[in-house]
Design a protein around this nucleic acid. Structure first.
Lengths: 208, 208, 208, 208
DNA sequence: TATGAATGAGATTTCATTCAT
DNA sequence: AATGAATGAAATCTCATTCAT
């Protein structure tokens, strides 16, 4: 967590620092991000940075666990709404839509998340997430179980594996979206997600 | 490509260098791999390294595009055999089996591939692969087209997206294999792949 | 010397600052003492510190030359009393007892003195004491001269050297006391001092 | 220990580096010594330093435990010779003479030793000496025991305390020598030591 | 008088690459 | 062809002190 000094700064300055940090962490992976570059671009003294943040990791954690999460919350409102009532595939769709809309509106933040997911330093990962990745699979496993209970899904599927596949698709669908399509049109996103989910739907839904 | 000097070395020395490089690139991501460590472990002078290779990238490229690819070829023989005659799903299965067997028999090389796939420096990626990832998708897109032509697949599927999904699954299935299962038994691997493909099969095969 | 602003503070605040400063200077040597830590622990603003003291050195000087000296005065009352009448060795003994009792009752202050004595930055030393160490020797040289005059001491001894030795012993006896003995019992301290002085007594007293 | 690369350097270069390091460590305490300054004065690249030494501590250890010790050995030859046969006071005298002559001929090295002895960071001290300071007292305690056995010394003296005193005097006599006398004349040194030892001799020798 | 954000020089350390021998 | 010493830019981080409010 940033120090109090950081939160006592003017909003403009705080935002400038965060923005420049986002710029760099979106462009480079953790190791390659340079604090010197960030302070240069944010036009603050190097010493000031260390008055605001414990160290590089502190800033990184803050971006990942606060700035990004905060932004993401809005996008997940539909998902959480649907979560209660709808069929498994509707909920899953809401989840993907949330993810993609977030990436569309906040490409840099999505890029940072992407860098983090792909980061290979497991120690750093563990220290920052401390179990949140398994949690992400737990979320999907829970959804799958509910889906089976509701009768939406074929009870014979391998839950763990299916969850793994769905998680991995979150990433690939995001990449596909970023690299192949540069869609402005929301309809296309919907179509994309529909197509992807259709494949699964047939594969894992209950025939009954 | 390594310089001629490298290929003029005795096989033993060449192998020693390659082995130590594989060790390091399997352990660390590109940035964190230390040339100093490699030359130490291979017991060659640092200057010599730069007489064999242009630079760090040169070695990395060589490992990825030559050493690894060369090893992989054997594993793909079944796949290429089946490619001619069998149904789409048989071919796909052969492709996955090849990939998993390769990872099982050459864990370090698989690790290097993994590191590369997850590497976040797009410039490096582009410079090394320079279109090979699209090519990898092109392979799958080709398979899909053939599958449609043969009547195996539903002609309405989004080919590009489906190819993307299948590629992404290569990665996730590999990870799942490495982290969740520590299978000695080939049967389990087969079951794993069967389960995964079943989901797709239902999703994309031709109902007719 | 601290600025007037410091002395205008409430006694409580002043004491809090001094106490925290003592804590830090007892724990660390001059260079390693952190003003930031002191102001944090004393709960004053960093800017305030520089309105009370010129700089770090100013605080340090104040502790050494005022706070500590002030405390020491009581302990030297016996010494000064005896100074008039008693034999050289009685006076010397009183001096050592004063020193050790001071260290026993004010371990942090003693630690600060210790750090200072051992500090290696001669410039700082000179600037702070500015002749006080020679003065400390002058005290002993005076005692020795008096002792000779009284007939207590052998007039042939090298006064300067003997004074130097006695000064150095103040330090070593203090360390020995702190590190080897953890005496609660005053008797043991007396015995320790007696033993040490006995060695000298035989060495420098007048045989006549 | 310095790395091999250091010992492979030309004698001139090696000496230049050592000399500049000695200069700095004689002037400043460990913490204040700047590697940057040393490399500047030795006219080597900063990176080179780290090819020769692990880090700052490595260089410091090398100076203390190798460079200085090596130089000191010669000075102790008389001492070790006398150690076998002579009376306690002769041996002690030889020890002091060795110490003082060393300091006279190698004032900077003596200064470094002095800085180290007075250094307050016990962790560093422990790491470097790892028990050598108690050993120094053990040496004197051994001498004292031998002296008692031979009948040179009063068996009633407190051995530990006496050893402590003698150790402390090694330091103070060195300082006295450096600061008060700037003797060229060896005779004066002898007189100085004789005077000091006389005091002790009377104090602790066997009356019988 | 009180505050605490701002400063910036300077510290140690790393490492791919070059180059003289 | 082989060697390994030399390089130096760039990295993170520290901290006493200043200064605007």
């Amino acid at each position: 967590m940033p120090k109090d000094t950081f939160f006592n700064l003017s909003i403009e300055k705080r935002q400038r620092i965060i923005d420049m940090a986002i710029d760099e962490f979106a462009k480079y992976s953790y190791d390659k991000v340079s604090i010197s570059k960030i302070v240069d671009k944010a036009e603050i003294a190097k010493g000031s940075f260390y008055q605001y943040f414990e160290d590089k990791k502190d800033l990184y954690k803050y971006l990942l666990l606060n700035v990004i999460v905060e932004k993401k919350v809005n996008y997940l409102s539909h998902f959480t709404l649907k979560m209660q009532e709808e069929s498994f595939f509707e909920v899953l769709k809401a989840l993907y839509i949330a993810g993609i809309n977030f990436a569309k509106d906040n490409p840099k933040l999505a890029e940072i998340s992407d860098h983090f997911t792909k980061n290979t330093d497991d120690n750093l990962k563990k220290e920052i997430y401390d179990g949140s990745i398994p949690k992400s699979n737990a979320l999907l496993e829970g959804l799958l179980l509910k889906g089976i209970a509701k009768g939406d899904l074929n009870p014979d599927i391998d839950i763990k594996l299916t969850a793994y596949i769905l998680t991995s698709l979150t990433i690939s669908i995001g990449e596909y979206f970023i690299k192949e399509l540069k869609v402005e049109d929301d309809m296309e996103i919907m179509t994309l997600i529909d197509n992807m989910l259709l494949i699964f739907e047939k594969g894992i839904k209950n025939k009954g």
